[in-house]
């Protein structure tokens, strides 16, 4: 079975429970394959949890969920060492972060201390408690959500830390017909319960390895860097995308190309993924915010300005 067929099976599986959210499924899988994490910014009830659950179930991975609240402590996330009287020693009890697929719900509700603990373990793929470091088993994929409509009692994530997330996505409401379909499917039973595992963790690791083999031509690298440097010179942008952003874009392009059954990245991949990668990595000037210009609009403008390389002529 080729990589494309395997991936198609996973996506088809997710489609069974998630209606009309093929793009989000693809993007989540892209992030998973590229070894990155996703920040979902959306209102409750649009299926965020369902998406993560379906993904976890499809690949036979363990699924953990952390509901962030203001009184949540880092140890509630990472785990604690408890004294075991029988063994006469401290025993580490891993927290919910030690899992394959973790849903971190409403992370902007908890204190910066706890946020930092989460973000650090995401970055390092390890947990350090009482001087003891425990590696989190692979695959490790965090899907954090953040509610954009409530500001009371929230601790917005510092923008500089947002680039721990590969993508920032918005789910959006389903279409009318899609919503009706959601109702029909849930009429008799809960679809997620019947979902089968179609991909082993072993196979997933192979896919993650295959992503690294996807060709990124010199023209494409040039194009990515052109886009990135445009964000740094844009008059509306206070802080542009860092080289880490360029790297993130390239890696996600590789993963996305694999999902699309290609072994090479095209400019279309770059154009498609750039808004998700760049959107949360730029800090806009306050003037731009007052004018109501969003970062996605700026990314769109940049993409309509940077020339797509269509041959090797004139390449530096």
């Amino acid at each position: 079975m080729t990589h494309a067929q395997v991936i198609d099976k996973v996506l088809a599986n997710i489609d069974k429970v998630m209606i009309g959210k093929r793009d989000i499924a693809e993007l989540s899988l892209t992030a998973l394959l590229a070894g990155g994490h996703v920040l979902l910014e959306d209102v409750p009830g649009v299926g965020k949890t369902m998406m993560v659950k379906a993904l976890a179930k499809s690949i036979g991975a363990s699924f953990k969920r952390i509901q962030f609240t203001p009184d949540l402590l880092p140890s509630d996330v990472l785990g604690v060492s408890i004294y075991n009287p029988r063994e006469m020693e401290f025993e580490f009890r891993p927290g919910p972060i030690v899992g394959n697929i973790v849903l971190a719900d409403e992370i902007n509700r908890t204190s910066p201390k706890t946020q930092a603990a989460l973000l650090e373990s995401m970055e390092e793929s390890s947990v350090t408690v009482d001087g003891e470091t425990i590696r989190i088993p692979q695959p490790f994929f965090v899907m954090a959500t953040q509610n954009p409509i409530e500001y009371e009692g929230t601790y917005p994530l510092p923008e500089a830390q947002l680039d721990r997330f590969l993508f920032k996505l918005k789910m959006g409401y389903p279409k009318r017909s899609e919503e009706i379909e959601v109702l029909s499917r849930a009429e008799k039973s809960v679809p997620i319960d019947h979902l089968e595992t179609v991909l082993t963790i072993q196979e997933l690791a192979e896919l993650q390895h295959a992503v690294k083999e996807v060709t990124v031509d010199h023209t494409i690298k040039t194009y990515i860097v052109d886009c990135t440097s445009e964000t740094r010179t844009n008059p509306h942008v206070y802080l542009g995308v860092s080289p880490r952003g360029s790297l993130a874009l390239m890696k996600s392009c590789q993963a996305y190309a694999l999902i699309k059954g290609r072994t090479y990245v095209t400019p279309d991949d770059v154009k498609y993924l750039a808004p998700f990668v760049f959107g949360h990595r730029m800090i806009l000037r306050s003037e731009a915010k007052y004018e109501g210009i969003t970062s996605n609009e700026i990314v769109d403008r940049i993409l309509t300005r940077v020339s797509v390389p269509i041959d090797r002529v004139g390449l530096k």
Binding site: T215, D217, T219, I220, R262, T263, Y264, V265, T266, P267, I310, D311, R312
Partner: peptide
Amino acid sequence: YERGLYGGY
């Protein structure tokens, strides 16, 4: 064309 240009095939 893209296969050749971007993928080297």
